Simulated assay, not measured.
Amino acid sequence: MHLTVVSSLDALCRQQACQALAAAHPGAVIVLHDLLENGRVIRRVFARSGPLEREETLLEHGCLSCTVRLDVVPTVERLLALGEDHIIIGLPPAVPSSTAIQALKRGLAHEFTVDAAVLACAPDALEDHIWDHHTLFESGFTPVPDDQRTPGEFLIGDLQFSDTVLWADPELVPVDPEGRARGLQLLRELAPHADITEDAGSIRQGRHDYAEAAGRTALGAVRVPAGPSASPFTTIIQRVRRPLHPERFRHALATLAQGCCWLRGRLWIAAAPGCRITVQGIGPRVWLENTGPWLADQGAAPSADRGADARLDWHAEFGDRGTVLAATGEDIDPEEIARLLTGCELTDAEMEAGFAGLSDPFGLTEPNEAGSNETGSNETQPTDPKQRSNT
């Protein structure tokens, strides 16, 4: 029993992608879910012969995760029980494929294989979405007012988790050829692991590797292209071993993030030396999170089940402690990034003086209940922390 999961930012791209997949796999059943205002879910199921059902469900708590858990999963379970061999799931717009696949793994009684996690998107709109400072609700992509994610946050997250990008140009929207070419270059830089295609028939079945996808999306994970970029977009990576002075790093962060489509990595900050701090900057928004203690502070050594990053970056003296930062964007100066980060490192005298008395401008000394503390999110001043609600 095989599943293809299709995520998207908007319904137009999802519709085109699902139509193309249906044509490429005529024996598959198509399941589309849409979440409307006030928790109303519309479910439509199609087969080659035509529509099979259309149902409406009113959820008590109308959120995207509840839609997946209470309607998507039971629908797929029912279809699998009826003997359907291939189901193409068109998720509600802005629902991450990782959320859906996790719920399916927990909730389905039948054995199944996720053949592909497909992100459907229009390349010529990619940059605009990444730099959109509005929330998904404000931009009209979700009916959930409490969803504080930006369009860029959704897209970057699903680009990392998905194994395939199916680029779709909705017929209602005129295509900008130059924007599309630029968007495809950016897609290849942001998701070097993914197959990027406009041909649904060329999607390789059985390619999805859940463990690898989860590793790419783990907080603080750094994955970079294997070779030099041939596009205007590049990715640079910078490592420093000593802890960062919190105030110097606070002042440097705005410059580090400037012009980056995507900034990510993990930080060793002297004000919270026992805490593994992750940084994420997508378009105009930058935030830091406390993800708990370093492995070295837990007396743990790197191993296969503790993540590739810890094994690759383990240091004889510091263990996994250290700063690793990757930046993707246009016209990024690696020497400037290196100079800024090196200037944030503690000096010999500061190392000898110890970390006591250093201020914590980010408020990162304690993780939150979920194991992380999101503290920085500000479109106009990235280093000015602001509490951000989880979605």
Rank of each mutant, 00 (worst) to 15 (best):
V240W: 00
C275N: 01
W287M: 07
H208K: 00
R182S: 15
P361Q: 02
L219I: 00
P228I: 00
A28F: 09
Q298S: 07
P92F: 03
N368P: 02
F141D: 11
K386D: 06
A254R: 10
E37G: 13
E77R: 12
G157P: 04
P243W: 05
R311L: 13
A103H: 10
L3P: 07
R248T: 02
C260R: 07
L82D: 10
Q160E: 14
P177Y: 06
D320R: 06
T75F: 04
L312Q: 06
G299K: 02
G265S: 04
W287P: 04
S377W: 07
A194R: 10
T142E: 12
I42K: 12
A230V: 12
E127H: 10
W287N: 07
H315L: 00
R250Y: 05
F362M: 02
F355E: 09
A191E: 04
G179N: 11
K386F: 09
G376C: 12
S202G: 13
L256E: 00
G107L: 04
R149D: 15
V173T: 15
A47L: 04
R44E: 15
I88C: 05
G371I: 06
A270K: 08
L312V: 02
V222L: 04
T291V: 10
T291M: 00
R285K: 06
T342H: 02
R188K: 15
I269W: 01
A100F: 03
H134G: 09
G206L: 05
H193Y: 11
A120Y: 10
E171W: 11
P123K: 12
T197H: 14
D320W: 00
R54Q: 12
G227S: 14
L59V: 13
T4Y: 09
E84I: 00
P192N: 10
E189L: 09
E153V: 00
R48S: 15
I337F: 03
G83Q: 08
D313G: 02
G376N: 03
E247C: 13
P174C: 11
A316Q: 08
A109E: 15
P92C: 07
A338Y: 03
R180S: 15
G107S: 10
R388F: 01
L91N: 03
D147W: 11
S372Y: 14
L263K: 05
T99S: 14
V41R: 08
W262E: 02
F46L: 14
H251S: 13
G62F: 06
G107R: 11
T150F: 07
A218L: 13
L108A: 07
N368D: 13
A181Y: 00
V31C: 13
S377H: 06
D163P: 11
H129N: 13
W287G: 08
E53H: 08
G292M: 07
R311K: 00
L104Q: 09
F141Q: 11
C18F: 04
S97N: 11
D158I: 05
D195V: 12
S372W: 13
R14T: 01
C121L: 15
T135Y: 12
R182V: 01
I89F: 05
A316S: 11
K386W: 05
M1H: 09
T217D: 09
P302H: 05
P284T: 08
G227Y: 12
Q258N: 13
